[in-house]
Amino acid sequence: MSLFPDVVSKNASSIISPPLPDSLPEFDSPLRLGILASGSGSNMEAIAQAIQSGWLQAQIQVVIYNNPQAHVAQRAQQWDIPSMLLNHRHFASREALDEQIIQTLQAYEVDWVIMAGWMRRVTEVLIGAFPRRVLNIHPSLLPSFPGIRAVEQALQAGAKVAGCTVHYVELEVDSGPIVMQAAVPVLPGDTPETLQARIQQQEHRIYPVAIALAATVPPK
C-alpha cells in the first residue's frame, strides 16, 4: 500500500495526485544521498532543487552514472556535485559493477542510494550493503507495468490512468514496498513521449518527499 494513495475523481480526465505536505521531517543531520543515474538527470536536479530550497534536509554526496553520454554528468557539474562514470561495459559482471558502486558510495559516506533513471539491474551485493536504504522511481503505478518501457506498456494495454511509484529496491525488478505514488490521466491521442512528460512532472514532485518519508517511516 502507498502511504499517500491517489485520489481519482469520477471524471478520468481530472486525476488528483496526492497533495504534497507543507513541510518535510527534520533529521539530526542531513541525509547523505548517492544518486545512480543513466540518462538526463532531471530527477537528480529536482532533488537538488528541493535541497537548495531547504525543503528536503539532505545533501547529494556523489552522482554515479554508467553511460558516458548521460547528461546527468553535466547537471551534476552545474550543481557542483561530484560525479563518477562507472561504465558497466567495463565490468565482467553485474556483481563486479555493484562492488565498485559500493566502494564509491562508501568513499563519499553515503547513507541512502537513490536510483534516478538507473537503467541497470542491481544485485544482492548492492542491496545487502544498504539494506532498506535503496530507493527507485518507476514510471507506472506499480504493481502494474513493471520492467522496461512501462509507459509503452500502459498505452498498449489501454490504461486510463498512469503514473509513477517510488519504492524500495529488492532483487526482483520493481517489486519492493511502495513509499509513494502519483497518478496522471492517459489522454486521447497520447504518445509515449507526451505521457512520459506528464509522468515525469509527477516524479519530480514526489521523489524528494518519498526520500524524507522513507527515512522517517520504516517499510512494512
Results as ranks from 00 to 15, higher is better:
Arg205Pro: 00
Leu85Phe: 14
Val72Thr: 00
Val184Gln: 06
Arg149Glu: 15
Asn87Ile: 07
Asn66Glu: 02
Ala107Ile: 06
Asp80Leu: 10
Gln61Ile: 12
Leu195Ser: 03
Phe4Val: 06
Asn87Arg: 09
Leu97Met: 10
Val72Trp: 00
Arg198Leu: 07
Ser29Thr: 15
Ile211Tyr: 12
Gln78Cys: 05
Val113Thr: 05
Asp80Pro: 04
Asn43Gly: 07
Ser53Pro: 04
His90Lys: 10
Ala150Glu: 00
Gln74Ala: 15
Gly189Val: 11
Met44Tyr: 14
Leu171Ser: 07
Ala70Glu: 03
Gly41His: 04
Arg120His: 14
Leu195Phe: 07
Asp98Ser: 11
Pro5Trp: 03
Ala12Glu: 03
Pro146Met: 03
Gly189Arg: 13
Ala162Lys: 08
Tyr168Ala: 02
Glu45Phe: 01
Val173Met: 14
Ile102Tyr: 12
Thr123Lys: 15
Gln202Val: 07
Glu203Lys: 00
Pro18Trp: 05
Gln49Ala: 14
Val63Trp: 00
Gln100His: 13
Asn136Lys: 07
Val62His: 04
Pro177Gln: 00
Arg94Met: 04
Gln201Asp: 06
Gln52Tyr: 01
Ile211Asn: 06
Gly189Tyr: 07
Ala12Pro: 12
Gln196Cys: 09
Trp118Val: 00
Pro82Gly: 04
Glu170Leu: 11
Lys160Asn: 12
Trp112Pro: 10
Ala46Tyr: 02
Pro143Gln: 04
Gln106Met: 02
Gly163Lys: 11
Ala107His: 15
Ile178Ala: 01
Pro68Ser: 06
Ile51Gly: 01
Ala92Trp: 09
Asn136Tyr: 12
Leu171Thr: 11
Gln69Phe: 09
Gln59Val: 15
Ala154Asn: 01
Ala214Ser: 15
Thr194Met: 12
Gln78Gly: 00
Gln49Trp: 11
Trp79Tyr: 14
Ile35Phe: 01
His167Trp: 05
Gln49His: 13
Glu95Thr: 02
Ile127Gln: 09
Gln77Met: 08
Leu33Ile: 01
Phe91Cys: 01
Ile16Gln: 11
Met180Trp: 14
Gln200Thr: 06
